[in-house]
Every structure is written in C-alpha cells, then in structure tokens.
Amino acid sequence: MPVYHLTVNGEKRTVESTDPEQPILYILRNDLSLTGAKYGCGLGQCGACSVLVEGDVIRSCQLTINQASGKKITTLEGLSQGDTLHPVQAAFVTEQAAQCGYCTNGMVMNAVALLAHQPKPTQDDVKQALVNNLCRCGTHDRIIRAVLRASGKVLP
C-alpha cells in the first residue's frame, strides 16, 4: 500500500492509503485518532473539518492525502500545550461559545488563522472571516465575542 509522510501536531507520522485521493479528514480521524476535525458536508461548504496546513486554514475534506504529503498539519488537538489552552480555545471557554459543539473545531481553527494574519480584527472582520463557517445551534454571537476576546479586546 502506498505510504505517505506527514507532520501532524509537530510529530512525524507515516500513513498508508490505497487511494491517493483519500481526503486527509479520514486519515486524521480514523488512522491517527485525531477526531477534533469533524465531517460536516464533505463538500467544503461548512468548515467543520478545518485544519491548519503550513499555517493556512484548509478544509480537510477537500485536501487529498497526496496533496497533504510532506506538509505540516495542525489539528484542534495540537493547539493546546498539555493543560494549557491556546488563547482562542481559552476565549471560547470563557465565552462558553459552544452548544452542541460540532462546528466548534472549524470556528476555532479559522479564528486561529485569522488572528495570525490580523491580530486586531474588528467585529466585522471576524464576521467576514467566518462567513463560510456554518453553525446551526445559533452560537454565532458568542463565537464572535470569543474571537474578539482572544484578540485582546476588552469585552463587557
């Protein structure tokens, strides 16, 4: 079976796939037991499967193992250092910014990518950055607050 080499959350990993077109979402979830990224649509429309590839936020349902080969991938699990949460994760906890939480992975990963490029976004910037991330529970307002909080904005 063809073998692929990846760096996932700082660790070198070797995975096998009979199909070079297999999206890395399934590799992460099933082969590497990293289930933070969620299957939401398989169409790149909802954002639930987002991961960081070389620092850019990518829909893992749309990235094949062949394309991902040799790349550095960070998943939701790789953001925190032991018990120390990433500032975005900590802000999500402070704002209690999840209901069912199924979309949360995508929200956190997109927020991390946004703040890396734009450390002090406005509320409209946050809304635009998350325009392609869907949430069905209606947690949007808290997610916006969490991202602003993570950027250091003082919230009432």
């Binding site: 289930t35 939701l76 949460l85 906890v93 910014a97 999840a98 939480g101 949360t104 992975n105």
Partner: peptide, 21 residues
Amino acid sequence: LPRPDITAKVTGKHPYMHDVK
C-alpha cells in the same frame, strides 16, 4: 456556572457519537 463539556469541545477531546470506535 460554566458547562462541564465546553473545554473538551474546544480541544477536540469531547467524545461525540461520530468519534466512537
């Protein structure tokens, strides 16, 4: 009081139905 499952939900550790093996 904060909900007990939020930390796990934002760190990828919450055991969803979809993650059961």
